[in-house]
Design a protein around this nucleic acid. Structure first.
Lengths: 191, 191
DNA sequence: AGAATATGTGAGTGATCGCTCACGTTTGCT
DNA sequence: AGCAAACGTGAGCGATCACTCACATATTCT
């Protein structure tokens, strides 16, 4: 069963979604198609199980790195969130890409949206604990903006432009994007 | 030919990628499959043409709204960028979603990345013209972060959580995210 | 050992798909 | 009208796919 998931992941990362027929998955896993259907009711179920495992793994990396800075100040916490997202995206970037860019079924994406919502909840908890330091009145909106932003920027960097990560300004600048948005410090002069 | 593209767009928005077989496209367009292949060499070519048209339309909306504020101050320009991205995403949200979430071919996504790069160039031009007002030293990185951020936040809102757009804080807060990142105003106290 | 059960096999099924091609139909010219 | 080129047609081809099922093999009982 694990071998089926491992074979599927390998095919997806090497040949993309098109190469992942049930016969080929069975072949690479070293079992027969019949066996494959004893463990999974459908091809979609295999992919779904793989997505679930991948999402769980990414979220676990994210959550663990965040737990370490629950009491830290804003700057340190923001830097940790950014670094955590980068690490989470390094779990299996190729597989991550296939899931987000090649899966033709919409239902599959819901699983990714869910870890987004869970990440938002973690961040909102932090923001609420330090509410008096925060400029935004609507912390729900703030958490949404931050998580969406950091995820997008991280994703674009890790998946599409890995050379960005070599830029020593990358993490500090993304951190600044978050911190300057959140902190009360004087913004631009208000009209 | 236009009818083929229109039929394809309609099927994609109504039934998703799975429903868009060449026979069905021909049927909805009111032509025969044979005719379809006189205008397009392959099914992929139809989808590609549709993507190109869609991207061009979105970028044109974005570019036009931006041209109007080329000389405006940072706050106004940022607000315009945010509003422009929202408007661009309203061109055809359902089709946009299918393109980004259901197309199984990676090659198709390159076309979306290209308008991202073009948007970055527009933004960078503005940033460079006002370089002395900007805090970030690396305006290339700044343009990348801003465009990626505003696109992601806008996309998430328009496509997945349209109720966000009803929040009167939405545009101001996204604008604040950009302006506070860019402006020289005192950031958080530096260690 | 032998029956009963669980597990594994892979050729084959039916359905779908992108695409072709032999054949009509229309159009525009002389 | 007569012809030819351009345009349109749709049954059907070959390929592929997810999935099944009759059968073989392995395992666990008594």
């Amino acid at each position: 069963m694990g071998s089926i998931l491992r074979a599927t992941a390998r095919i997806l990362t090497r040949d993309g979604y098109e190469g992942a027929s049930t016969n080929r998955i069975a072949e690479v896993a070293g079992v027969s198609v019949g066996s494959l259907y004893q463990y999974f009711p459908s091809k979609d179920a295999i992919v779904a199980a793989l997505i679930d495992a991948h999402c769980e793994e990414m979220f676990e990396v994210f959550r663990r790195e965040l737990a370490a800075v629950a009491g830290a100040d804003l700057e340190a916490a923001a830097r940790a969130v950014v670094a955590a997202q980068i690490e989470a995206h390094k779990v299996n970037p190729k597989l991550h890409r296939v899931f987000l860019e090649q899966l033709p079924k919409v239902g599959m994406l819901k699983r990714f949206h869910e870890i987004g919502r869970r990440s938002e909840a973690l961040v909102r908890t932090y923001l609420e604990a330090r509410r008096e330091e925060m400029r935004p009145a609507n912390l729900d909106l703030a958490a949404f903006l931050l998580v969406t932003t950091v995820e997008a920027v991280t994703h674009a960097a890790v998946i599409d432009q890995p050379e960005r990560l070599d830029d020593p300004d990358f993490i500090p600048e993304v951190t600044a994007l978050c911190v300057r948005y959140l902190a009360k410090g004087s913004g631009p002069p208000r009209g």
